[in-house]
Structure formats: C-alpha cells, structure tokens
C-alpha cells in the first residue's frame, strides 16, 4: 500500500461519523465524536508515560497507558474528553491510566462549567496493579462527585469491545447520565467472574444470549440504568451526548433521594424476576422474547414508549 493511499483512507475516515463505535479505536472515537481538528490531548503517547508496574509481569506497555484525555469542542462548545482503549489490557484501570482521568475531572471541578465525556471501554481494575487500580477508581468516583457538585455535567458513553465492567460500572453509576449501545454491557462482576466463583449453574459465561440480555445495553435502557439507547455509530453517540448535555439538571441531595426511591422501586417491582425477559414482561412489553432481535430504531421507539427515563434520579 502506498503512503498516499494510506493518507487518503485516514482522511476519509476522519469525516465518517457512520463508523461503528464498537469497531473504532479510542483515538478514532474521540476524533470523530468531537468537532474536526478541535482535540488537544494531555500527556499524549509522545510523552511515553507508561505503567510503572507492567514490566514486573513481562507485559508490553503502551505509551498512553490505554487512555486518551484532552479538550475538544462539541458543536462549538468546549468539552473535556476521556476515552479508554479496550484493546490494551481490556481497557483496565491502572495507576497512570486512572490518574489521567482523575486529573481531568479535577480540572473540570475547578472550572465548574465545562462538561466531561467519558468514553468507557473497560474490564475494570487492571489486576497486575490491582491496589493502584482499585484506588484510582475510588479517586475517580470521588472526583466525579466533586465535579458534579461544582455544577459539571459528566456523561458516560458506553459501546466498546470491553464493555463497562467492575469498577468501571461503579464510575458509570456516578455519572450524570449514560448513553449506551446494544454492545455496551454494564455490570460489576463479569460473566467469567460469576461463573468462576459461583459455578456454571449460576451463570454460564459462554451463553452469549444470556450475557447480552442480562448486562447489555437494551436491558440497561429498559431497566433505567442508562438514559439513552443508541445505534452503534459515532454519529448516534454524538447526538446522544448533545441531547444529554442539554437536559441534565443540577446534582444535590434531591438527586440522591430520587435515586434512592428509584432503586427501591426497582427492587420491589423486579426483585423476584429470574430473568431479563421476566422484567421486560413485567414492564408491560407484550412480546418480550423478541427484544434481543429488534433493530435499534424499533427498540428505541419501544423503549421510549414503555420506560420512563431515570433522568434527575442519578
């Protein structure tokens, strides 16, 4: 392949927001999501700030430690952005990876008016540096709450290969609002972890249909765990981010009390349901077994009809 051909391919991708979110790298997502040419990265790969711990395990490092953080513009307005690379160590939180996001959120807190978009793609804590990764997640959760208390909107976008697992799921739960695609699984314990600890009778991690309907984006939307469901394109995520930014209200004690009621109500209504299909049926969806096969546009129409949004209760 000639150099000029490579260049042409790259530049056409730059304009192509029909690209699959799931298939795109973290850098491509950031570049296509925000206004063209608007992104400035902080401590980019040229700084070579790698994990200080992976060499103990003879594992390869990555020059950005698997996360892009920076400032860009969305429809002309400034936004901070962080994007995890699910193809490096499953997007897991290590010391450097986590500290970049913490620093970004603290800057947003100090400024108070620039929103933060977090493009989750993570299996959770990076186990080779588990203590540092766990604490990084705790610091990020605190920084999200501090930023939201200062008036910052923090939006999570979830639709990557690694999903949003472990501590990533807890950070997502701290955000002001979430947009999720079908591929965007959100959960604390991953399928393999449940199976390893509780046995295949509790959860068969190879049963992909079970994984999707228990943890996938459609269930999260119907349950109220995500505000918006989107199709798997960069354009759809961009529109969702804009919509959420325009509709989020202030965070405070009333938000938390509303969330307490929302979650208590969920336990009362669905606490005895053995499967997602039973929850969807209890929600009044006539042909619940057909949900996993519904195309995105039909699902969005259905979800908007049956499930009130959890907005202002998160």
């Amino acid at each position: 392949m000639s150099a000029s051909h490579t260049q042409r391919t790259t530049s056409s991708v730059e304009l192509d927001r029909t690209a699959s979110w799931y298939e795109s790298s973290a850098r491509t997502r950031v570049r296509l999501l925000l206004d063209p040419g608007s992104v400035v990265e902080f401590i980019g790969p040229e700084k070579r700030e790698v994990s200080p711990h992976l060499k103990l395990f003879d594992l390869p490092e990555q020059f950005d430690d698997g996360i892009v953080v920076g400032l860009g513009r969305l429809d002309g307005s400034p936004v901070f952005v962080a994007a995890q690379e699910g193809n490096f160590m499953g997007g897991a939180f290590g010391e450097v990876h986590g500290a970049k996001l913490t620093g970004l959120l603290r800057a947003a807190r100090d400024i108070g008016s620039v929103p933060v978009l977090i493009l989750f793609d993570t299996g959770g804590v990076r186990l080779q540096e588990a203590n540092a990764g766990e604490l990084a997640i705790a610091e990020i959760m605190r920084a999200v709450i501090e930023a939201r208390t200062a008036g910052v909107k923090v939006i999570g976008l979830i639709g990557g290969r690694a999903g949003c697992y472990g501590g990533g799921g807890l950070i997502a739960g701290c955000c002001s609002a979430l947009a999720v695609s079908e591929q965007g699984r959100i959960s604390v314990s991953g399928p393999e972890v449940i199976e390893t600890n509780r046995g295949v009778e509790e959860f068969d991690s190879r049963d992909r249909a079970l994984v999707w309907r228990t943890m996938g984006g459609k269930h999260r939307r119907l349950l109220g765990g995500a505000e918006v469901f989107v199709d798997d394109t960069v354009q759809d995520f961009r529109e969702a981010a804009l919509e959420l930014l325009s509709s989020i209200r202030a965070f405070g004690i009333d938000t938390l009390k509303a969330e307490q009621s929302r979650l208590e109500d969920r336990l009362q209504r669905f606490g005895a349901c053995p499967d997602a299909v039973d929850i969807w049926t209890a929600e009044g969806i006539p042909d619940a077994v057909s949900i996993p096969a519904l195309p995105a546009d039909q699902f969005i129409a259905l979800a908007d009809k049956v499930r009130r949004s959890s907005r202002d209760a998160r």
Binding site: M141, G169, L170, I171, A172, G173, C174, I186, S187, V188, S189, V193, I194, N197, R198, E202, F203, T214, M215, H219, R220, L223, G224, G225, L256, E259, Q260, L263, R266, L267, F270, G271, C273, P274, D275, A276, I279, R314
Partner: peptide, 18 residues
C-alpha cells in the same frame, strides 16, 4: 456475584451508596 444482582443493576446500587 450473582445473576440476580447484575440483572437488577448492581453497579447503580453500589455507585449510589458511594
């Protein structure tokens, strides 16, 4: 670690407590 807890959105309950 259970199907029921994840089905009901455990990440939201733990985040809410934190």
């Amino acid at each position: 670690m259970s199907k029921r807890d994840e089905l009901l959105g455990l990440n939201e309950f733990l985040a809410h407590l934190a």
